[in-house]
Design a protein around this nucleic acid. Sequence first.
DNA 1: GCCCACCGTGAGCAAATGCCCAACGCCGGG
DNA 2: CCCGGCGTTGGGCATTTGCTCACGGTGGGC
Lengths: 354, 354
Amino acid sequence: MREDLRQDDYELLARLAERYYIDERTQEELAREFDLSRPKVQRLLELARRTGVVTIHVQAPPWLRLELERELRGRFGLADAIVCSSGPAPEARREAVAQRAAQYLERRLHDGSVVAVGHGRTAGAVPRYFRPGNRLDATFVSAMGGSPRIDAPTNPNEICRALADRCGGRAESLYAPAYVESAEVRDQLLAQEAVAATLELSAGASLALVGIGATDDDCTMVRSGCLTEVEVARLRRQGAVGDVLGNYFDIEGRPVSSPHQERLVALSVETLRQIPTVVATASEPEKPAAILGTLRAGGVSVLVIDEANARAVLELAGRSGAGPVPGGEGAGDLAPSGFGPPPSPARAALSGVL
Amino acid sequence: MREDLRQDDYELLARLAERYYIDERTQEELAREFDLSRPKVQRLLELARRTGVVTIHVQAPPWLRLELERELRGRFGLADAIVCSSGPAPEARREAVAQRAAQYLERRLHDGSVVAVGHGRTAGAVPRYFRPGNRLDATFVSAMGGSPRIDAPTNPNEICRALADRCGGRAESLYAPAYVESAEVRDQLLAQEAVAATLELSAGASLALVGIGATDDDCTMVRSGCLTEVEVARLRRQGAVGDVLGNYFDIEGRPVSSPHQERLVALSVETLRQIPTVVATASEPEKPAAILGTLRAGGVSVLVIDEANARAVLELAGRSGAGPVPGGEGAGDLAPSGFGPPPSPARAALSGVL
DNA sequence: GCCCACCGTGAGCAAATGCCCAACGCCGGG
DNA sequence: CCCGGCGTTGGGCATTTGCTCACGGTGGGC
């Protein structure tokens, strides 16, 4: 900074800046006092900012990682990123992330809100911290089928119920497993009024809460019995690094098309993109690649993760492929809610792709 | 600062502040993103400023004494104060002050401007530094009579001529001495069309440049032969500490009524107050009391002095009488051009008091 | 010496901001 | 339990701000 300002200019800038920013006078007053045109005062003040004569500092609380959040937002066009710092204990990390996600939900939910819910260990921890001040008439609806272990706390239906309990809202369960035996069975399921209605409801949600899954042998899909280690290994071989609602991506964010996709009962990524705010959570140490793939796939608009994952994702993104977004800093190109392209209404996308 | 903000609040403030001040998003965008009303965002941002979460710093050039200037402005209701720091050599100080005063004039003068001019060593040094970029059709007119030594460079007429030379403007001389023998002689002089017209012109000036005189044995009035040491001593005994245009004040800014006043050919203080911008200069080490008295008398709206005098004046004001103005800091009560009370047009004041 | 390109300037307008006020909900008192 | 007061909220408007654009002046090029 500090370009080649002559002494006089520098002095004028400082005087103007002081009067404007410290004394809170208006530009018009300054224009009169300094005998300049109002637009000129405005240009000079802008110059003062650009050249560093005026410095605006935000005293961030030390526990916040605003830099990381800013970089995540900038790189991946997120509407928001929340990075929780916490000790090395995986438990603590998950709880911290869950707490912040819960806090975020509290702020965003109103009477009448409809929330599409995915699965995952971290997402499953969210209800524990979800305590809206007053009773909230919100609807929580499963956005994907459940696992064989029906009452597992990582099960979408279960998370919906817990969230609804916490705020006095309603839970809409999806009576279907995440993966069925075949495409035919899936189509039969979707033909059922109850299943179709539930999925349609979740497709029209104003907010979604989803977990980001990995593809290691110990991932949630395996632990919950939705997929076998063999199936996950096959996905890995096809390049899959992670999933959202059972939709798998490679590290570049490209969908991994596999037989599983046709057996999946869940919102598609295209449908997810129609949801204005998609909150994704992750906290496990084996997640960086999964998170990166998901972010690149688009659709996620708010990311809640722990600091270690945040740094790992950024590092990974820095090395591999697509590189950073041009204006990685500054006002940046802001994509408030995920995406531009897909213009079709939720309903069309639902019947089309799902 | 830093009130008792809860952690959550603090965090919200920091996030908002960062997005607003660093990323330069609008309050409306933030309201949408954080799901708050726009007015609430505005209140939170204000809170962030008040509590010090946001700090705006003006990187003042080291040679500026903005603090001193601010205090002078606040204490004495000045529209502007310019403090020049310079070494202990009196010459250097005077030149520095003169230079800044000249610079100020350059900024304020336009074609058609009329400038009332007083006398003094520092004021006399101003023309040397007066170099407006392009030729300026301004009129410089003596606001007080001259000294016996007609061509002294501290003489108003001489200063007018020099200023006019520097910019291609016109000089209007006042053909009269500062002090005449008696009130009767003064009245005769004022009855003369040339003298009356000149004084009237200066009374209607849009800007005045005056020196602040002291009452020591070596003051300008004595050096230039306007008054004798004996006369100045008598003024001192009456409490006079300084003068503007030959009008003497005590340390509280009260006019010192003395026989001299009736023999003076110059604008009265009341008339001076009608002039929108009155620039007063001083740089000599024996001036603090004179400056203080003048400032308290009101009428001066822009003060150009050296750092030593600035500090001395403030110290003196701190100890003696009237104490500091209530809102010594902050947005302060701003009196853009000297005063409120005297409502009579320049002409009335002129014929009345002069 | 003349012409052209360019920078800096200020009018005018649309957006953003600050602020007032009425309505609401919460809390303490009766 | 009901009521009054106080703090908080967001709608709506006046002001302030950012920005575009056409203009005039200036310096360089021919």
